[in-house]
Design a protein around this nucleic acid. Sequence first.
DNA 1: CCCTTATTGTGAAAAATATAACATTATGAT
DNA 2: ATCATAATGTTATATTTTTCACAATAAGGG
Lengths: 208, 208
Amino acid sequence: MITTKNCIIRLSRYKNALYRLQALGFVKFFSDNLADAVGVTAAVVRKDFSVFGISGNKKGGYQIETLLEKLNSILGKDRLQKVVVIGAGHIGSALMRYRGFEKEGIKIAAGFDIDPSKVNRSSPVPILPLEEIKGFIKSHGIKIAVLTVPDIAAQEVVDIISASGIKGVLNFAPLRLKSPEGCIINNVNLEIELENLIYFVNVMEKTK
Amino acid sequence: MITTKNCIIRLSRYKNALYRLQALGFVKFFSDNLADAVGVTAAVVRKDFSVFGISGNKKGGYQIETLLEKLNSILGKDRLQKVVVIGAGHIGSALMRYRGFEKEGIKIAAGFDIDPSKVNRSSPVPILPLEEIKGFIKSHGIKIAVLTVPDIAAQEVVDIISASGIKGVLNFAPLRLKSPEGCIINNVNLEIELENLIYFVNVMEKTK
DNA sequence: CCCTTATTGTGAAAAATATAACATTATGAT
DNA sequence: ATCATAATGTTATATTTTTCACAATAAGGG
């Protein structure tokens, strides 16, 4: 199923919202319930569903349980996803300790750092020397890496890990990386996010 | 100047790319140089510039220094931007220690946490009790907050800080917050970013 | 059993965004 | 001084995305 990044982000939000609705005791929902919960319109919800051949019952809405199964299957959440974190600095270490991924079925299999003093094979998420990453990726069949190395090292690391089998990179280094053939790079750029916020806050202040 | 979020993100990227070009010794550039550096087309660069009344010289391109001044002014980088971080957990603490903001003219004025054991008034970024946030925001004129509290607390905190004068929130809690009147919320959702990557990597694998 | 109502599913319209095309103009060579 | 060239700036075109509108239809009441 081919579609846009935004659409898939919405699917994730639908999934999360449905879990919340389910926790509140709901069993079924209508497109406008979900739309409200996620902050889109009902038409968008139904359109997104139709792209993936998801159908409900006229006048009856959708079953939460069925929908969650479908969304989880689409999003690959019906199996454990193993990822590695590269760079055990402030951000990388925080991600390795963050509990939020577990409950989403995402397991950080290991961290890697070039600095030998950071290596710790016995921590909950073992931190290994960068030299071992190639072998680790291959032997564990890891497809996804989170990159929190200094920007100067980022491109080199991407090229190495992509050659070792990584297909997707979540990049925290504040620069745009050239993505090797067959490798998807999503960027999380906190500086730019803040700049953006600052810009729009300033604009709001001025036009007020 | 009213425009889209994507356009402003591109301005940030232009700025970053121009600094890199400048560091390499360049003094001027053409729209296609910058386009290559940022990963867009030359037409987009010129279009974005024209939206902000930025002009260059036919056949001569643009002066990096002049451009940087303009971009920095548009993005509010001609003055120090003070922000607060709310929530001193793993992610919040990492952000407070992260050096990347400083060089972008963004200063984390303080962190806040509801847990008294996290309070530390003498650390480089002082961590203060959450009760003090209202006064701090007002007395320091803070407009921007980074929110790294547990999702269950996020909406309440947003409502409080918005009432105290916060106009922009960078939210790390993995749920969509209702933005109070006059308050902009940008979301950084790491779980969703990873899910997204996982989806597209899977799609790629299948269609291969 | 029919009629009203509420909701889906989709096709068409509108809006937003990105791309391309090209007329304009400054530069430098002849 | 004129001409060819190279790059801008903007208008036009195409594409993508969102929104709207409504026909189809299942459920429930009378």
